[in-house]
Computed example of a mutant assay.
Amino acid sequence: MKKLLLLTLAIAFTFSVNAQIETPQSSPASKLEQRVGLTDVTLEYSRPGVKGRAIFGDLVPYDKLWRAGANKNTMVTFSDDVTIDGQTLKAGSYAIFVKPMKGSWEVFFYTDTNNWGNPQNWDDAKVAVKTTVKTYEVPFNVETYTIDVNQISNSGAALEFIWEKTYAAVPFTVPTDTKVTSSIDRVMNGPSANDYYAAAVYYLEEGKDINKAKEWIDKSMSLTETPRFWQLRKKSLIYAAAGDKKGAIEAAKKSLAAAKEAGNDDYVKMNTDSLKEWGAM
């Protein structure tokens, strides 16, 4: 009877420890992912409500730093370098802080994203970009704080902030033209030395058309000013697989010499072993 009582108490205690009551957050978390041109923009923030309160100039005081949301830092991530107010903001993640003023906001992109609220010790060196934008009064009440990516074009967009009756936007541009032009040039100029090399090695390792692999490795070598020892090693193996022992030996000797110069003992041994196998040593 005593053992049964103890077991019952243990089960009840375990249940009480593990049981959790889940309730809605007063400022629910939100995550927005948006592609602008060829750049990915991700916003993560919490969304407080007005709830009958006066917001800017009251709940959120003027001329004081605000975390641009609730709970953990509001955070934006750009997959490419972007331009804000003529300043380059490097690809990466940033906390957004705002200093609201009458008629305008100062907006800060801060490199330290691991704060709950404002940083305990603000560091100007961590401000990657600072800009000032105008605010506008909207003719209706926006109950839930919202940040969005709007005004989207191939070359840019705007981070838009709207809450209660206040609207502000931070325009930014993205390097779409540079990326597209680079892609066009790359494709129109044909495969690179690395493309030919990768294709040749794949064909060798997968046992596909070895003569095509030989053609591609030759093309890669012709486009490479100074082939490295590991590239020459692959060339020797492709030639050997294609039945061109003379070409394999020539490539292996070049790889051996380059490996010795680079001090790479592994490739020295591999080339030496192959040259012995092919009767060249």
Rank of each mutant, 00 (worst) to 15 (best):
V17Q: 13
L7F: 08
S26F: 12
S26W: 12
L32D: 09
L7K: 06
S16L: 07
F15Q: 07
A10P: 08
A10T: 10
S26T: 13
S16V: 07
P28V: 01
K31R: 11
T8Q: 05
L32E: 10
S30G: 06
T8F: 04
Q34S: 02
Q25E: 14
L5M: 03
I11Q: 06
K2W: 00
V17S: 07
T14P: 06
S30Q: 10
K3F: 13
L5C: 02
L4G: 07
T14C: 15
S16N: 07
L4Y: 10
L5D: 03
V36M: 01
I21K: 03
P28T: 00
L4S: 13
E22W: 00
K3H: 10
K3M: 09
S30V: 12
V36F: 01
N18C: 14
F13G: 14
S26I: 14
K2Y: 01
I11G: 11
L6H: 06
A29Y: 09
T8V: 11
N18I: 12
R35C: 06
S26G: 15
P24W: 00
E22C: 00
L9G: 03
I11N: 06
T23S: 05
L7H: 01
A10R: 12
I21D: 01
S30E: 10
Q20F: 05
Q20C: 05
F13H: 07
L7Q: 07
E22P: 00
L9T: 05
K2V: 01
N18S: 15
P28F: 00
K2C: 03
T14S: 15
I11F: 07
A10G: 12
L6P: 05
P28I: 00
P24L: 00
L6W: 06
S26D: 15
S30Y: 07
Q20E: 08
F15I: 12
A19T: 13
N18Y: 14
L7C: 11
L5H: 05
L9I: 11
Q25D: 14
N18D: 04
A10Q: 08
R35V: 13
A19R: 05
L5N: 01
P28A: 01
I11E: 03
L6A: 11
L4D: 13
Q20G: 08
T23E: 03
A29M: 12
S27F: 02
V17N: 10
S27Q: 02
F15G: 10
A10M: 08
Q20P: 01
N18K: 15
V17A: 13
T14H: 11
V36Q: 03
P28K: 01
N18L: 15
F13W: 13
P24D: 01
R35S: 11
A12H: 04
N18F: 12
L7R: 05
Q34C: 02
A10D: 03
S27V: 02
S27M: 02
E33D: 07
F13S: 14
E33W: 00
T8S: 14
A29R: 13
L9Y: 05
A29V: 12
K31Y: 08
T8C: 14
S16C: 10
A12W: 09
Q25N: 14
P24R: 02
L4M: 10
S30N: 11
T23M: 02
Q34A: 04
L32R: 02
P28Q: 02
A19F: 10
L32C: 04
V17C: 11
S16I: 07
T8D: 04
A12Q: 04
N18M: 15
L6Y: 09
T23C: 03
S16M: 08
K31V: 12
V17F: 13
A12C: 11
